[in-house]
Measured scan of single mutants.
Amino acid sequence: DYYKILGIPSGANEDEIKKAYRKMALKYHPDKNKEPNAEEKFKEIAEAYDVLSDPKKRGLYD
C-alpha cells in the first residue's frame, strides 16, 4: 500500500505527501543508510510518491 509505505493517511493532501516523501527518502537514501534493504525501500518510496503525487495516477490507484 503506497500510503502505508509513506506513513500517511489515504486522505493526505499534496503537501503531506511531499513532506512524507522527503522524510522517508532521506531516511532510506542508499548514500545515507547502509542497511542492505535501503536501496529497495528507497525505490518503493519513490514509486509510491510517483503515483500519489500525480492526481491521475492517484485516482486510478484509489
Rank of each mutant, 00 (worst) to 15 (best):
E44C: 15
G11L: 04
D1C: 12
K32V: 03
K23R: 09
Y3I: 00
L52D: 00
I17L: 07
F42R: 10
M24A: 11
Y3W: 03
N33Q: 11
Y49T: 05
H29L: 11
E16M: 06
D54N: 03
Y61K: 08
K41L: 08
E47L: 06
R22F: 14
A48T: 01
Y2A: 05
Y28N: 04
K34C: 10
P9M: 08
L60H: 13
Y21E: 02
I8F: 00
G7V: 01
L60G: 12
K43Y: 07
E44M: 10
N13T: 09
H29G: 13
L52E: 01
D62M: 10
G11A: 07
S53C: 14
Y2K: 05
N33I: 11
K27F: 13
F42K: 10
K41T: 09
L6M: 10
D31W: 05
D15F: 05
N37L: 12
L26D: 12
A48Y: 00
A25V: 15
K19Y: 11
R22S: 14
Y3T: 01
Y61L: 08
E16L: 07
G11C: 06
L26C: 13
A48R: 00
K56R: 06
Y61I: 10
L52R: 00
Y61E: 14
A38L: 11
E44F: 10
K32I: 02
S10V: 07
D50W: 02
H29P: 11
I45L: 09
G11W: 08
F42A: 11
A48F: 00
P9V: 07
L26A: 13
A38W: 12
I8M: 04
L26R: 09
K43W: 11
D15R: 03
E14S: 10
K27H: 15
L26T: 15
K41N: 15
A46E: 05
N37I: 01
P36R: 07
Y21W: 07
E35Y: 04
A46I: 06
K23Q: 14
A25K: 14
K41S: 10
F42N: 11
N37F: 09
P30K: 12
E39C: 15
I17T: 03
P30H: 15
H29F: 08
S10P: 06
L60C: 09
N13S: 09
M24W: 12
A38Y: 13
G7R: 06
D15E: 08
Y3N: 03
Y2V: 00
K18Q: 14
D50F: 03
K27Y: 09
A46S: 14
P30C: 10
V51Q: 15
G11M: 05
A20P: 00
K34H: 04
K57L: 02
L60Y: 04
E35M: 08
K32E: 04
D50H: 08
K56A: 09
A46K: 13
